[in-house]
Design a protein around this nucleic acid. Structure first.
Lengths: 94, 94
DNA sequence: ACCCTAATTAGGAAATATCCTAAGTAAAGT
DNA sequence: ACTTTACTTAGGATATTTCCTAATTAGGGT
């Protein structure tokens, strides 16, 4: 939960997940879209993986990154709870 | 937008906004709920104010912090766009 | 005027994040 | 076996965040 919002807190990582909305992409393909070194992007991808916002899948020598909607929904649930009037547990605050 | 997610990225700040769900609170009242110094909590409150997730209102010598639902909704809109299939603009990625 | 209560700002130490270049791994082609 | 392609890990400089204590501001009461 904490890693989730931390992952979302960087503009580059948000842009990456926005890109992945259209479907899985390779690491290099993602890196090419940014004005930063490939290793830096790998670092951001690792952060996204730690947060479970993305998952990976090897396809030969390339690695495809896929957006994990379930994690996005988890973040949304937290925010929804803030706007709604429903009941909540202390669990939500972690 | 960036400040918004950055504000949400710290567990203490998330707990604060969860507390404010039940209504506005004073700075000291909030600080008392944490095992940290009051100035540290003031720092977090300032971060929340910068992100526009909370607003303040002076009431005599005490300051009340209020949750701003509109900012929560802005964050939610970003996430919703990720899960949905609707069209999107580059504006969203900021 | 003086003090108390409520809260913030200042300054600084320690931890974490962000970015780079260089080096390493691993699959695929020749 | 060697090379190329695709990508990650290692190491390190710099920037930012997080937290503390001490000092300050501001309103209210006596």
């Amino acid at each position: 939960m904490n890693n989730l919002f931390k992952a979302l807190s960087h503009p580059v990582r948000r842009r990456i997940i926005a890109m992945l909305r259209q479907g899985p992409m390779g690491s290099g393909e993602i890196a090419a879209a940014f004005d930063m070194s490939w290793p830096t992007i790998t670092g951001h991808l690792n952060a996204l993986k730690d947060s479970e916002l993305v998952s990976t899948e090897k396809h030969g020598q390339s690695v495809r990154y896929r957006l994990e909607i379930s994690a996005v929904e988890e973040a949304m649930a937290f925010l929804m709870d803030l706007t709604g009037t429903g009941s909540r547990t202390p669990e939500d605050d972690k």
